[in-house]
Structure formats: C-alpha cells, structure tokens
Design a protein around this nucleic acid. Structure first.
Lengths: 198, 198
DNA sequence: GTGCAAACTTGCATCGACTGCAAGAATCGG
DNA sequence: CCGATTCTTGCAGTCGATGCAAGTTTGCAC
C-alpha cells in the first residue's frame, strides 16, 4: 500500500542522512560535524541534504515529520467517554511503548541530545509546536477555545512535560527502566495534583 | 551599590541593542532584519553586537540573563512550611506582577514571538534551561534527586507550562486580562489535577 | 517500449550569522 | 597623571542555508 521505487528511495535517503548525522555527532560532537560531512557519509551531495532536512539539527534529531499528526489522530480516536486527561494518558503510554521497542536509535538520540544543549533547544521547539496542535484538538473535544480558555493549552503542555520528564528519567536509568511505566507514573502524579513527596 | 560609568554604559548598550532588534523585527519581520541593521540602529559596530548577545534571536527576546537565578533564589526564600507547589505558585504570581507593570516591552515581545516561530523555539529553549535549574532547587528542597525521582523535573516543567499558557492567554486577551490572575487560575487547575471542564 | 511530464539531484553563486585575532580607545584605581 | 584592565572595532574566514537552472531519474499513458 505504500511503495513505488521513488518513495522507497526517498525514505532510504532520509534515513541514511539521519543516521549519518546522529552517529557522527555521537562520535565527534555537534560542532565538529558539518553538513558536508553528513552528506558525504550518506553519499549524497551537500545540496541534497537540504531537500530532506531544513537544518543540521533536524537531521541529527531525525524526528518523524508526522509524529504530531499521528498523536492528534490517536487522541481523537479514543473512546468518547474518556476524559481528556485519560485519553492523553493512554496516548502517551502507547507512544512510550512504541519508542521503547527501539533499543538503539532512541537511546542514542537521547544521549546526544543530553550532551548538546542546541539539540535540546531544537527538541523543545518541536515539542512546543506539537503541543500547539494538540491543544487545538483538545479544544475541539471539550468545546473550549484554545488560547482563550486555559484548559486545552495547559493540558497539552502538561502532556509534553510528562513525556520530557519520562524521557529524561529513562536516560538517567541508562535505559533499564520501563519507559511506559515512567510515563504512567508521571501522569499519576499529575492527576493527583502534584502532592508533595513523602 | 551598582554604578560605575562602565557598567552603566554596558547596560545602556545592551538595552539599546535589544530595543533596536525588537522594534525592527516588529516592523519588518525577523528575516528582513540583519545583525548589521540592529547594530546600525543601536549605533555600535556589528562586531560589538556579538559582545552582548550570542545570536540574533537572543537580542530580539532580550531576556534578563539572571532571571533564572532570581527565580531560584525567590523559590528558596519562601517559608519552609509551604509545599513546593505553594512556593512555586507564589513565585510565579510575583513574576507575573512584575511583568505586568511593563505595558510596552512585554506586550511587544509577546506579539513578535507569536508572529515568529523561530523566536518561540528559542524561548522554549530558554524556558527549558530555566526549568532544569529550577528542578535542581526543588530537588534540594524535597530531598529528591532530580533526573531520578520524577517530582522535581515534573514540577519545574509544570511551572513553565503554567507561565507559558498564561502568557499566551494574556496575548490572546490583547493584554486586557490580569496576568497574575491568569497565572493563578492555571495553578488552580493544576493542583486540582486538571479536572475536565464543565 | 516509447515518450512526455513530474519529481529529484546536483553544482554554482550568494547571503548572512557567527568567531578568533589583534590593535586601538575608553575607563578604572591609585 | 599613569599603568592595568576592559570594551570596541575592523578584518578575515568558516559554515549554514537558499534560489536558480541545468541534468538525471522515475512514473504513467498509450
């Protein structure tokens, strides 16, 4: 249901550029890797690099361009009798399970992000954009207006924080912890209103 | 307790560069404003620009470089019988009151940020860095370890979301709403565990 | 399979952000 | 007033990023 040769080649090139970027940066650090280096290792011209990624940082992160649409779709597909919080918690858990199946690229990405503040910044930006879109979806589901009523933006932002916090703890555990469990624990604290520990 | 001529000039130059950057971008958009333009209007050389801001975006945002340390200090100065949530809520309220006294620059900043995704990204990065530091402070206050225990990172992140959401709504109200009230409302929803509206 | 149209790759030229360096100007402290 | 420190500036250079105009590959109809 997907393939033509053209499409498969594009996917392969994109993935080759991302892996080249990620591994090079893991080896030598972001500042010591140029776009030319990345293009070289992926065996395309430097100019072609920019047909696939709009900047160097994006290639290193290599995020799925329709992760955000998928997240929104998954949220809207949840049963109508769930509260928005329940629905988002379930979506987050499913995302976590998905990510946890990748035992190589995601850990490497997170290590690199942790070592390079510029990438953390870029990631925060991507999350922010995703949260904006998600807030719209929450608003349509609750009948609120995003930007005017606090609930949609706040909930979408909180969902992002839960995921970021859990990814950070996953890294801190050297990927021995269960990411879905971490995500669920974070949501547990949130729905309890962040009671002081102990 | 502050002044020498040298220090006052530095403050003035920094502020001149920031206002030049902010107003130019408000007039013509981020892409149509070069560092040279900003330096021209502020009457310094382009090279000097980079003695004050590490990149163009930072000059447009013009954020207080010790806002984050101040926030941490304010948090740690709260009475010891407050819960972390109560303390952070109070700190956020105080920050909001402070910001609301500025009826020109903050509204202009927020309008420009809203119009330029790149600035939103940069702002998200700055917030993220602030949250990291704040999480450390929360951890020392609760005896948790940031990064291992979820509470500090989660709470710091939530504080950021509350502020971002409120700034967004302040903008959406065309700055007619009370920022401290918006901040307090956001925290009210958070401590209640984000109950579904209506 | 032939051939046209659309999509993709590439080189080239260019702009502008950003950095290191070294010389000169302003300020500070006594 | 003088030496030490700090700040400003110009210059040269690197690299990220973009528009444009070939040239090449793939898709599709006939």
């Amino acid at each position: 249901m997907t393939t033509g040769l053209r499409e498969r080649k594009k996917l392969a090139t994109r993935s080759a550029l991302h892996e080249a970027a990620l591994r090079l940066v893991a080896e030598r650090g972001l500042a010591s890797v140029s776009v030319d280096d990345i293009a070289d290792r992926a065996e395309v011209s430097p100019r072609t690099f920019f047909n696939y990624f709009s900047c160097k940082d994006d290639a290193v992160l290599g995020l799925d361009p329709d992760a955000s649409p998928n997240q929104v779709a998954a949220f809207l597909a949840r049963p109508a009798d769930e509260t928005p919080v329940q629905a988002l918690r379930a979506v987050a858990r499913a995302q976590a399970e998905e990510m946890a199946t990748d035992t190589e690229l995601w850990p490497l990405r997170l290590k690199v992000i942790d070592a390079e503040p510029a990438l953390l910044a870029r990631l925060a930006a991507v999350f922010g954009e995703g949260e904006r879109v998600l807030a719209e979806a929450v608003a349509t589901r609750t009948g609120n207006r995003a930007g005017v009523d606090p609930y949609p933006t706040l909930l979408a932002g909180v969902a992002g924080v839960a995921m970021r916090t859990s990814l950070h703890r996953w890294l801190a555990s050297d990927f021995t912890a269960s990411l879905p469990a971490l995500v669920d624990e974070a949501w547990g604290l949130l729905v309890a209103g962040l009671p002081a520990p102990r």
